[in-house]
Write a protein that binds this DNA or RNA. Sequence first.
DNA 1: CTGAAAGCGCTAACAC
DNA 2: GTGTTAGCGCTTTCAG
Lengths: 345, 345
Amino acid sequence: MTRIQKVAELAGVSTATVSRALAGKPSVSPATRERVERAARDLGYVVSATASSLASGRNRNVGIVMPFLNRWFFTTAMAGAHRVLTDAGYDVTLYHCEPNRLDDPDGADNPRRSRLFADSLLRKRTDGLIMVTLSLTAAERTSLHGIGKPVIALDRPQEGITALAVDNLAIAHTAMSHLLELGHTRIGFVGGIVPYDLDFHVPLLRRQGYEASLVDAGLEIDPLLMCDAEFTVDGGYDAASQILGAGEPPTALFAASDELAIGAHAAIRDRGLRIPEDVSLIGIDGNPLAEVFGITTIDQHPDAQGAAAARELLKELEPTSPHAAAAVRLPFELVERRSTARARD
Amino acid sequence: MTRIQKVAELAGVSTATVSRALAGKPSVSPATRERVERAARDLGYVVSATASSLASGRNRNVGIVMPFLNRWFFTTAMAGAHRVLTDAGYDVTLYHCEPNRLDDPDGADNPRRSRLFADSLLRKRTDGLIMVTLSLTAAERTSLHGIGKPVIALDRPQEGITALAVDNLAIAHTAMSHLLELGHTRIGFVGGIVPYDLDFHVPLLRRQGYEASLVDAGLEIDPLLMCDAEFTVDGGYDAASQILGAGEPPTALFAASDELAIGAHAAIRDRGLRIPEDVSLIGIDGNPLAEVFGITTIDQHPDAQGAAAARELLKELEPTSPHAAAAVRLPFELVERRSTARARD
DNA sequence: CTGAAAGCGCTAACAC
DNA sequence: GTGTTAGCGCTTTCAG
């Protein structure tokens, strides 16, 4: 492969000047820059990332760490971050952090995860890290701090780490307001639980939002109208079935995610009920699949969340460039579709 | 950060020996190795990936290039490859290769993609590449060859690149055989098209398999029973609706993917038809979502496909380790669920 | 089996 | 604005 020396020779300058010109440093005369760029192009020269990293201490590479590599929310957030980072000239190295099982909260028996924090993440390959919806143990946090590189956590506030998180209470409130404004008073809650990493953060906030909205509206909290499940379509089916079969049925269902809502959708129809005539249904996320079923949702723009996390990280990596100092807001919004309608009198 | 020198001092050996010991080279006495490992552990030393790369020429890093970063099939294949690679001690950097639009087949107006092939991929950051379901232009192939690193293509045979691909003809044949054995004679085809990169490879093979099966069974090919759509749920809905509304309706539908099948499922039910009593339905892929709807499918194990591609690449990266020389088979299989049943007489 | 020494390809002071 | 000169932190001949 062509090295910098060749380019220097062809352009008739020193390697230092080639380096400066190609890095876009200001201290290069236009004429020289032009000659260097031509020489580089003619030779098909591209700098060696490793050599550049070693010499400069900057990798132009950031790591994204995710608990799941093929679930919609995670990969969509990742894609958002990826685009911002590559547009800024960074490469992205993807790390998989296996969730700890509930019966092994410290990951004593999670070798892949141990290796990640003991080795992979410490190899100095990245300039910074984005951790998507991941809960770390104290030891892991210590390990991360040891590398002395910026870390941004997305959707999981944790001690000592800059975090971006959507306002889950407000999201739940928005969903409930929509239902309440349509005149519903018996509203069921298909809640989600996260069966790993002992993390009840998001599910808890959404449930709290549900209950608070009910109380604010002067309505009672009926335990028979609430049921939890994993954040999966199957879970939503079962939880909704249970709610619909117990006591006086609700006229509306609020599901803590779109996947749960899709499951609830099937459960409602399987009981011979119509949507929205008999039961209104709303979810959370913005999963395109919900659109196919006409399910009203609160879109939380996971791609934008990933992009925001990436921008936040870039801000720390390149303090020189001017960035808005304002706190990051992760927006969300109601998307009305045909699964919600006025309650019948 | 601790450097190799510190470890050498603590262990009372030279840096060369530390390097050898930690790399697992055989030419180190057990006693020395032991001392070095202890010293490294005590100091929390982890080698710098960049320094090691520069000195050795090996990155222990492979690139995965994908046209979509958040679609189930792609991310599932990626996850399969990721696991094999990280288990082998490699990091994975993820590249996004934007598909070329049909009105710009050479990507003249696709700056992100141009940059990928002109820069990112040439920075010598990786030891090899896995390209998932991606069609390259001649120029891109040339560019790739220039870097002189092994490349494995998954599910897209192309000139000059080692490729792994599932037998799409056989898959279609298996699906059709299932339907035919159930006594169906009017079978519709919800076909997929790929509206980018001018690539009609997979859709074409699946359609050919459909037609060939019909011919083999002595049945006629009825154009009214075939309709193409994008590989999306929406597309499946529309295509199925059209088939069900034209001429004498089929008693079974074969969809070229599970997403198409899910759309078809909704279309069938929306016309007041029952599954499988009125219409049988089969898809392709193994998408877990199809399971929720009870849709029979041909599972093609995308995770295993990704893993196979990764193993194939490792074989080229580490010719020393013993590997089976046998050609790679990508298996698939019929998964019967409740969407298919005997045709009524 | 181990050490000394020469780079890997580039960048960053420091001169001029 | 540009060249010279040290390294960045590690691996790898080459000796012994």
